[in-house]
Amino acid sequence: MNWRSYLFHFYLDASIHVALSVFALIEISCVFFGLSRDNHISYLVFFGTIACYNFVKYGVEAKKYFLVANTYHKNIQVVSFIAGAFALYHSFFVSYEAWIGLAVLSVLTSLYAVPLLPNAKNLRSLGGLKIFIVALVWAGTTVVLPIVAADRVMDWDVTVELAQRFLLVLILMLPFEIRDLDYDDPELRTLPQRYGYLKTKFLGAAGAIVFFFLTFMKDHLTCFEVLSKGLAFLVLGVLMGVTRRNQSKYFSSFWVEAIPIFWWACILVLDAFLIP
């Protein structure tokens, strides 16, 4: 494996890519609501996502992981601990209200991998519920936290944005569910297992339509936001159209998770050059 391939795989496996996607969605919320950026919240979430996602991915077999991990995985451990340290540093600069939100989201994230009671199931093993928990955590992290950090009231427009973000993340998770259809335990009862591959794609497309038209329920709406949400709607529609059961290796893990980053980049271009 050459160094470019190594860095790319490490970028994905160490959860840096997914952390950048979460960071992008926070920045999008700041643009839509005209918030002054709270760097501590943004960086806390970025580094915290790396640490938390690696905990979820590798923490189930933590003992085995620490004992037999090769150099590659030990490097991921090092990055995770460093990211956790940076997250802890930035956490000292956030407000009390933001701390409460972070605590609730952290508990949900922990229960995703670790059961609350001995011999109980974690949330990750509850396939029918899993994607809704993940979507809720992402929506809360990328909408509620920046709003709370900016000391803004949770008004109707924020509620609509929260619902849209929940739908967005839910739709982005469907290609992963479809990809794993042949490998997931039937007891998980994931959406593709319950409704089939084609109906799941249809549900995703319908969700994209609901996502877009929720925009018009906001009290304060601009052409910029309509255009931005319209772009996201088109991307989500195309995504549902091209998603297959037999996916290329990086379709979900790279391209699907890159959609929030692409959306953020497009919003920055629109905001800087096209929208007066």
Results as ranks from 00 to 15, higher is better:
N2I: 04
N2R: 05
W3V: 13
S5E: 11
Y6I: 02
L7P: 00
L7I: 12
F10A: 05
F10P: 00
A14Q: 08
S15N: 02
S15V: 02
H17G: 07
V18N: 02
F23D: 08
L25R: 07
I26F: 01
E27M: 02
S29Q: 03
C30S: 10
C30V: 10
V31A: 04
F33Q: 06
F33K: 00
L35H: 04
L35K: 00
D38S: 04
N39R: 00
H40N: 15
H40K: 04
F46T: 01
G48C: 03
T49V: 00
C52Y: 06
Y53R: 06
N54C: 07
F55M: 11
F55P: 00
F55R: 03
V60P: 00
V60K: 15
V68A: 10
T71R: 14
H73M: 09
N75C: 10
I76P: 00
Q77W: 10
V78F: 14
V78L: 15
V79C: 09
F81M: 10
G84E: 11
G84H: 09
A85Q: 06
F86W: 12
F86P: 13
A87V: 12
Y89R: 13
S91W: 13
F92N: 12
F93G: 04
Y96W: 13
E97L: 06
E97H: 06
W99S: 15
G101N: 07
G101Y: 06
A103Y: 08
A103W: 01
S106K: 07
S110C: 13
L111Y: 10
A113E: 00
A113F: 04
V114A: 02
P115K: 14
P118N: 09
A120V: 08
A120R: 15
S125E: 04
L126G: 09
L129M: 09
I131M: 13
I131E: 13
I131A: 12
I133L: 00
V134F: 06
W138P: 00
A139W: 03
A139P: 06
T142C: 08
V143F: 00
V143C: 02
V144S: 08
V144H: 03
P146S: 05
P146G: 05
A149F: 01
A149Y: 02
D151L: 06
M154F: 15
W156E: 05
W156F: 13
W156C: 02
L162A: 02
L168S: 03
V169T: 14
L170P: 01
L172R: 05
L172M: 12
M173P: 08
M173S: 14
E177M: 01
D180L: 03
L181R: 02
D182I: 06
Y183P: 04
D184H: 06
T190Y: 08
L191H: 06
Y195G: 15
Y197C: 14
K201W: 15
A208Q: 13
A208M: 13
L214M: 14
M217I: 01
K218I: 04
H220D: 05
F224K: 11
S228C: 13
K229A: 12
G230R: 05
G230C: 05
L231S: 14
L234W: 05
M240L: 09
T243V: 12
R244D: 15
R245W: 11
Q247G: 12
S248K: 03
S248Q: 04
K249M: 01
F251E: 14
S252E: 11
S253V: 03
V256W: 11
I259R: 07
W264R: 05
C266W: 05
C266P: 14
I267N: 15
I267M: 15
V269L: 14
L270D: 10
F273T: 15
